[in-house]
Design a protein around this nucleic acid. Structure first.
Lengths: 184, 184
DNA sequence: ACCCCTCGTTCGTCAAGCCGAACGAATAGA
DNA sequence: TCTATTCGTTCGGCTTGACGAACGAGGGGT
């Protein structure tokens, strides 16, 4: 876990997003209602902005607030069906493959889930504050909170709290799903 | 677009996450290296924390930074295959259904994509800073940047910049995918 | 009853963020 | 060349966030 605030990341993010928008420092400062001296200091890595200031800049740059705290991402990345770390393939009838992991201080992982018909996998609560999204690709499955699961058909979608007991039970052969685990 | 910093959201988020962790205000302040008076004021909605301070609190609460800026989420939500707003169903051989839209200041949308074999859909660049993730559920498809697409089989994954021209071309019947559009 | 520890709030002080103004550098136009 | 505009940085000031100390309230333990 990063334990120090990424003030340098903020600096470069501000510069990067401003360059992308093709705006001058003066123009951004005016739009955000922030003194350009302040913005200049922030872009040079000096200083520790308040939330209000940084929020105004995010709005002016038309950028999600959190984007100013994340380092830039790689361009194109491909992971084949077999590749990638396979988590929870301990049961022969259940496999979850991590296809895209979350950057340091972001908050979502993307898995490919393949399940064979059977009793299904009951998951104990994960870390508090996790929300799971499931989009069923093919097959049929019973998914959701353990006390109130929902039957999904291809294309159906469900979101539920991951910090409560939940289940993923396949009802047909060839049940495949995409699971997004999001830390809120 | 929200144009004002969510200081009240921060206040309630701090209270909520602290309650969830079962920690006292004093304890959190000590862990974060922040004066408890400061934390008290923040939880009461007074004040406008610096990034460094809020970051320290996020670490102490074992929470992603961005979580402190988002309002709480709904519990369980289901969207059936037919339901949900269908975007880009203008072509008979291509449909994208929005199954989970991004909360106000977050940054990801989840779509279900269904494509019939054919010339495929070329997308002009979206808003700058968008990254698209595709997990192929079934079928076969040519996906990615227009100048260098990748052939995907079921279970394959690709991520690419959404602010460059890109394509989604099905090569088989019954091609279905999950697409996550993420604003970085 | 008493003491003692911890809870969260409030108050005064100090440092630091934010601001407007002034500055030198670079470019365009007459 | 000279002027005018815009760029980004640097410099005093004023405002405000962050701190430590002191406070009253609530809970166990003896």
């Amino acid at each position: 876990m990063d334990t120090k605030a990424p003030l340098d990341v903020i600096a470069s993010s501000l510069r990067r997003h401003r360059a992308r928008a093709g705006l001058s420092l003066t123009e951004v400062a005016k739009r955000a209602g922030v003194a350009k001296s302040t913005l200049s200091q922030l872009e040079s890595g000096t200083g520790n902005p308040s939330v209000e200031t940084l929020w105004a800049l995010a709005v002016a740059l038309d950028t999600p607030f959190a984007a100013l705290l994340d380092p830039p991402r790689p361009k194109v990345q491909v992971i084949r069906a077999g590749e990638g770390p396979a988590i929870y393939s301990d049961q022969a009838d259940y496999s979850a493959t991590l296809v895209a992991s979350s950057p340091p201080n972001a908050r979502r992982d993307i898995y490919r889930i393949v399940v064979a018909p059977g009793p299904g996998r009951k998951s104990e609560p994960h870390m508090p504050g996790v929300v799971e999204h499931v989009v069923l690709g093919s097959g049929r499955a019973l998914v959701g909170p353990l006390d109130d699961p929902v039957e999904l058909k291809p294309g159906d979608y469900i979101a539920y709290p991951g910090d409560l007991p939940h289940i993923f039970q396949a009802l047909e052969e060839g049940t495949v799903a995409t699971l997004i685990s999001e830390h809120v």
